[in-house]
Nucleic acid binder design. Structure first.
Lengths: 132, 132
DNA sequence: CCGGTTGTGAGACGTATGTCGAAGAGGTGC
DNA sequence: GCACCTCTTCGACATACGTCTCACAACCGG
């Protein structure tokens, strides 16, 4: 995952965090040692933080919850439930999609989203203090 | 947890999220139904999101990881490891402390921090898609 | 009491985030 | 082709966040 390295380098050079979300592929389930197993490296931390940021918002948590309980949901149904504009919901779904936590598929005029349980599961396993 | 309700009300009235972190006690381990068990309510989502936000930062993940692996660490040792100023590390530890994920105890001139595994465990259980 | 050390708080600064309305892209059906 | 519907992208705006420096609080050793 080369982009991660350039990000780390940028941090080292400027001494600051640049943009919050470095542009790197986070669609695959996170894969690194559990947080409690050993001191985390900088880029492992970034890998996990990117996915956590995607989840750390009430609207997105509710979206994930809806998708997890309902198997497949059309975007148009979500905005009313959350009380947000369609644009905002689309924005949140995009965040979740880029984090690999959901996937959407266009069928006709609608886009159907479903949760990627394995991605959420991988994230949870990394964070579990009792795992490994 | 009364503050949570006022927050929800404010959201309902203004139609917007106010400050990202409503002032409410998050030091106790999160306690709500698993995200996959049923559609999450607004304030359950806020409860979880507050704790996730506290975790969703590379520096804080590394701090948690260090504390989880080393049982007890003095603040002064952390800044060099993370390559951040002491003030910044203190800021991050404060975030984690307010989220109930760590606890600090002053002994002499130093403050010793330790991870609260049960809080992280509770958070992980809520998020686990395979739980319940 | 006073200098020295460690940790937190306050203020400032640049950037990211969440939200919306409006415009565009993708698709249907006539 | 054209009107229409659904979803995403764009631009703008207010606010939150991460970082620093500097100042203060807590504590020790004389």
């Amino acid at each position: 995952m080369p982009t991660s390295l350039t990000y780390v380098k940028e941090v080292a050079q400027t001494g600051r965090m640049p943009k919050a979300l470095p542009v790197l592929d986070t669609t695959a389930p996170v894969c690194c040692a559990p947080v409690a197993s050993a001191a985390m490296t900088e880029d492992a931390a970034i890998e996990v933080a990117l996915r956590l940021k995607a989840l750390a918002d009430p609207a997105r948590l509710r979206l994930m919850s809806l998708l997890l309980t309902r198997d497949e949901v059309c975007t148009c149904d979500l905005a009313p439930v959350l009380g947000l504009s369609e644009a905002t919901v689309s924005h949140h779904l995009g965040q979740l999609r880029r984090a690999g936590l959901v996937q959407g598929e266009r069928r006709g005029m609608n886009v159907w989203y479903r949760a990627r349980r394995e991605s959420l599961g991988a994230l949870v396993r990394v964070l579990d203090p009792d795992c490994c």
